[in-house]
Computed example of a mutant assay.
Amino acid sequence: MTSKVKLAGRCMCGAVEISGTADGPTAGACHCDMCRRWSSGPFFEVTCGDLVFQGEDSIIRFRSSVWAERGFCGKCGSNLFYHIVDSDEYQIAAGLLDQQSDLRLALQVFTDSKPSYYTLADDTETMTGAEVYAAFAPPSD
């Protein structure tokens, strides 16, 4: 049984603050081309529910695929989240969180897209791009 943990954080300039709950808390890393282009490395995230944004007017949302958008602060440029559009699921950038010492890396996705110049040491569950699409992509019409 995983426990719910309250999380809080903010962007670099403080214009956007977040609060919510997460399971564990566990972190994930995405190695897809888009995430690496967006964050200049793997996108480390914590999936949060019951999310509340303060400073919503500073959030810029970019529709990066048919089913997802990415958010960043329009004032300082901090990456904020990856969001599945037709859901309440937000994957918050782990670096925004005030308390990161209890995070545990539990999942890496798009491992078949990971470049060879880095390797993460933690032993985690892994998923290829095909496995991610099969598990999470909405059905096409």
Rank of each mutant, 00 (worst) to 15 (best):
Q54S: 14
C11Q: 12
I18C: 10
W67H: 15
P25S: 09
R61Y: 10
E45I: 13
D23R: 09
F72D: 05
S64N: 08
D50M: 06
W38C: 05
N79R: 14
P42R: 04
A68S: 15
R70S: 10
P42N: 09
R10M: 04
C13E: 02
W67Q: 12
C13N: 10
R10V: 02
C30M: 08
G71E: 12
Q54H: 13
A29E: 03
F53H: 13
I59D: 14
C11S: 08
E56H: 11
G20D: 03
F53I: 09
F81S: 03
F43V: 08
F53P: 05
G24S: 03
W67G: 13
A22G: 10
M12T: 11
C13W: 06
M34C: 02
V66I: 09
L80G: 09
E56Y: 02
C76E: 09
G14Y: 10
G55S: 08
E17L: 14
V46C: 04
G28E: 00
S39I: 00
P42D: 02
W38I: 02
C13L: 12
G41M: 01
F44M: 05
E69I: 07
A29G: 09
D33Q: 14
G14P: 11
L51K: 13
S40K: 07
M12Q: 14
V66A: 15
M12W: 13
G55C: 01
F44D: 00
K75H: 08
T21M: 06
S64I: 01
C73Q: 03
R70C: 08
G20Q: 05
F72V: 00
W38Y: 14
M34T: 10
I18F: 15
P25H: 00
S19V: 08
R37F: 01
S64P: 01
T21L: 06
C48M: 13
E45Q: 14
C48G: 03
M12L: 15
M12A: 11
D33F: 13
S58K: 12
A22D: 07
D57P: 01
T47D: 07
W67L: 02
V52H: 12
S39R: 10
C30N: 04
G24K: 10
T47C: 03
I60L: 11
A22R: 08
C13S: 05
R63M: 07
E17C: 15
